[in-house]
């Protein structure tokens, strides 16, 4: 069965920070469209981008990304 990478980016960004998608994108060095694609779980980020997002949202990678079947 194919495994899918789910994430909590939207929930954590809205719940724990006041960052907009554009602000988060600027901080991690990607486009706003990439944050949109990530939040809609239509794009799997590189490890570097994932770690940058986790750092900006002040959470661990394990909390931010979940591997589900």
């Amino acid at each position: 069965m194919a495994e899918k990478l789910k994430n909590q980016i939207r929930q954590i960004r809205r719940g724990q920070t006041n960052l907009t998608q554009a602000q988060l994108a600027e901080r991690v060095g990607c486009t706003r469209q990439t944050i949109v694609a990530l939040e809609q779980e239509r794009y799997n980020p590189s490890l570097i981008l994932a770690m940058k997002i986790a750092r900006e949202l002040h959470v661990t990678l394990e909390k931010l990304f979940i591997l589900s079947e």
Partner: peptide
Amino acid sequence: EITKDERD
């Protein structure tokens, strides 16, 4: 300005 990233 960031116009291109790893997804692009």
